[in-house]
Design a protein around this nucleic acid. Structure first.
Lengths: 199, 199, 199, 199
DNA sequence: AATGAATGAGCTTTCATTCAT
DNA sequence: GATGAATGAAAGCTCATTCAT
C-alpha cells in the first residue's frame, strides 16, 4: 500500500495519477498483452477504482494511445532530423545511433509494440507505427537500392527491436549488448549504402 | 468463397470440418489477433455453431496448439537434422535455405506468431516457440561467438520473419523477395561464422 | 431447476423462453419505463441469467423491437384494410371498432407506447409508430378537412389511448368503459366527417 | 441565498446559473428523455462541471422537481380558481381557455410530461401530476356524469396535450392550431355538460 | 457430427454523487 | 460559486464453455 516518501519532495499521490496509470498500464500491457489486460487489473495495481481511470482517460484505447505518443515524439523528431540531413553514410550511422538511444529509453514500449502488433493494428494507432518504420527505412536506404539492400535496411531496424529482448536471457552487460546490436545494424546499413556494386 | 462440387467428385463438407476450422481460425487469428478472435466469429465464418467447434477441439487454445503443431513439425525436423550435421558454413547455409522454404510454406502462421507473441506467450505454447528459436540460433552461431556475432545470427533469423511481411507492400515477385531475404540472412551468418577475426 | 407440468400438454419450459422474455419485458418496461428496466431485472424475474437473454435477442433494443412487431402487425393490417375501403362514415366507424379491439388486445403495449414516447423515440422504432398514427388519421379525416376537424380525428385516436389507462382507477366494467371510449371516438369522427358545414 | 450585484448592467453569468441549468435540463430531458439525459451532458452544454450542478441542486431529481414547480403553479392556481366558481358551462369553457394558455406558455414542459410519464412516475413527482389531471377533470365533468361523458372530459384534456405536438408537422399558424384544439375541447366538454339526456 | 439453450465470469463503460479545496 | 479527483454501483454486452439431445 502506497506510502508517500515524505520529507521535502513529497508530491507523489496528488496530480500524478495520470502518470501512474500510464506506468502500470505499460507494465501490464507488456506483460500480458493489451487485450488480456483488463482495466480492473490496472485499477487494482494502483489501488483506485476503475472509474478513476475513466476520469483520466476516455477509453482503454486512449490509455494505449497516450503511451504511443510518448514513443512517437522521439521517433518523429528523429525522422524530421534525418530528412534535413544529406543522405550520407555518416548520417545514416548517426540515425542508427540515435535510434538505438531512443530504443534504450523506451525499451518496454518497443517490446510491447513488437509483441502486440496484431492486437494493436486495428486501433488505428498501429498504422502510424508502420508508417514511421517505412519512413525510417526510407532514410536508411538509397533511393535506387536493389531488393537485397532494401532487406538489409529493414533487417537493421528490426534487428535492433528483436535484439533488445532476445538478448535478455543472455549473459552480459546491457550496454555491451546495445553496442553489439548497434554494430550489426550499422554494418548492414553500411553494406546497403555501398550498393550492389560492392566486390 | 465456398465452392463445393469440384471436378466430379464433390467431397468438401464431409470429413474436413476439422481442417476447415483450422484454416478459418488461422485466417482470423492472423487478421485480428488471437484474443480478439472469438469462437463465435470462427463458427459464423464456417456456418456452424460454436458447439460444433467443441466437437473437434477441446478448447480455443487447443485450436491454436493444433496450428502450432503444423508449424512445429518442420521446424523440429530441421533442428533435428541440423544437430546431426557438422557445424560447417555449408550446413548453416543449408539450414537457412530450408528455413526459408518452411517459412514460405507456412507464411501466415509465422506472421501470426510474430504479431501475437504477447498474447501467445502465456499459453505455454509460445514457450516452445522461443525454445525453438534459441535452438535454431545455437545451430547457426559458433559456440564461442562474441556478442556481435550472436546478434548477427539472431538478426538473420528475425530478418527472415520481418522481411516476410514488411516486403508485402513492396513491388516485385515474391520469389525474388524471398531470395533477397535469404541472401541477407546467409550473409549475416557467413560473417558470424568467420568470427571476429575476419579482415 | 425446472419442474414442468408433465402429462399431455407439458411444453412450458422448453422452447417458450423467448415468449416468456417478451412477456416479462413488457411488464417491466410498462411498469418502470424502458430505460429504468435493466436486463438483470428481466433475467431475475425469469430465473435465468442475463446471458440467456442474449441468446434469444441480440440487444435490449431488440427485445423492444420484437414487442413492437406484435403491435405493428394488427395496426398495419387495419391500415391496409382501410385503404381498400371507400372513405364512407361506415368505414371510419368500422376502423374505430377494429382499432378499439386491437387496443384491448394489446393494452399493456399501448400503455407502454404512450408513456415512453421519449425513451422510445430515439430507437428508430418509435418513428414507425408515429408514421402509423399519421396514416390512421389519414384514413379517418376527409382530405379537405379544416384544422378543427383534423383535430377531432387526432383527438379520437388519442382519446382511445388515454382513456384506456385513465379509466383504470374508475369504477365499472372494463367492457363498458371500452364502449364509452369508442362511443366518444365515433362521435368525434362522425362530426369531422360531416364537415364544417354541419348545422 | 445568492447576493448579486444588482441594478442595471452586467448580470449574465452571475446569478443566472440556476436558471440556465433548468433551461438546458428541460431541453435535454425533452429531447432524449429524463433517464437518458446525464448530468455530464447538461454540464457540458453549460460549460461547467458536474459538481457545479450540485451546488445549485441537491440531486438530479431535484432539477426535475424544480421544473415541475414552474408547471404546477399555474395549474394549481387554475384548479383553485375553478373550485370557487359555479360549475356552469361558462366556467368550464373559461377553464379550458385558461388551460390552453397555460399549455402554450409551458409547451416544452408539457410535451416532456406527456412523453416521459413512465420515467417520471416513480419519482413521486409524477403522482402529483396525475392527481392534478384528476382534479381538473372533476372540475369539467358533472358529478353524476355517465361513463361516456366522463370520457369526453378526459378526452378534452388529453386532446389538448396530444394536439399540441401532433400538429407540429402540420401546415398553418400556431395560433390557429391552438384555437382549433381549444374548439374541439370546448365542444367535448359542452356535450358532456348537456348530459346523457341530449337528443 | 452437430445443435439449441444456457451459464458464470468478466469486460468496458457510464452514472449520480461526494468532498476537499 | 465552482472545480478536480474520485467512488460505488450498476449497466449492457461478450466470451469460452457445457450438456442434453
Amino acid at each position: 500500500m502506497g506510502g508517500d516518501t515524505v520529507d521535502g519532495i513529497k508530491r507523489q499521490r496528488r496530480g500524478d495519477t495520470r502518470q501512474r496509470i500510464q506506468d502500470v498500464a505499460l507494465e501490464l500491457f507488456s506483460e500480458h498483452g493489451y487485450e488480456k489486460t483488463s482495466l480492473r487489473e490496472i485499477a487494482e495495481h494502483l489501488d483506485v477504482t476503475k472509474a478513476a481511470l475513466y476520469y483520466h482517460f476516455k477509453t482503454k484505447e486512449d490509455i494505449l494511445k497516450s503511451l504511443f505518443q510518448d514513443l512517437s515524439k522521439p521517433m518523429d523528431e528523429l525522422i524530421e532530423w534525418g530528412r534535413h540531413q544529406p543522405r550520407t553514410l555518416a548520417t545514416k550511422q548517426e540515425i542508427l545511433h540515435r535510434y538505438s538511444n531512443a530504443l534504450a529509453d523506451a525499451a518496454p514500449l518497443f517490446r510491447f509494440m513488437q509483441e502486440n502488433q496484431a492486437a494493436v493494428r486495428e486501433l488505428r494507432t498501429g498504422e502510424d507505427f508502420k508508417d514511421r518504420m517505412i519512413r525510417m527505412i526510407d532514410l536508411l536506404k538509397e533511393p535506387d537500392a536493389d531488393l537485397t539492400n532494401q532487406v538489409r535496411c529493414i533487417s537493421a531496424l528490426f534487428s535492433m527491436h528483436a535484439g533488445m529482448f532476445m538478448l535478455k536471457d543472455v549473459e552480459g552487460d546491457p550496454e555491451e549488448k546495445r553496442k553489439a546490436i548497434l554494430e550489426v545494424a550499422v554494418d548492414l546499413v553500411t553494406q546497403a549504402h555501398s550498393g550492389p556494386a560492392a566486390p
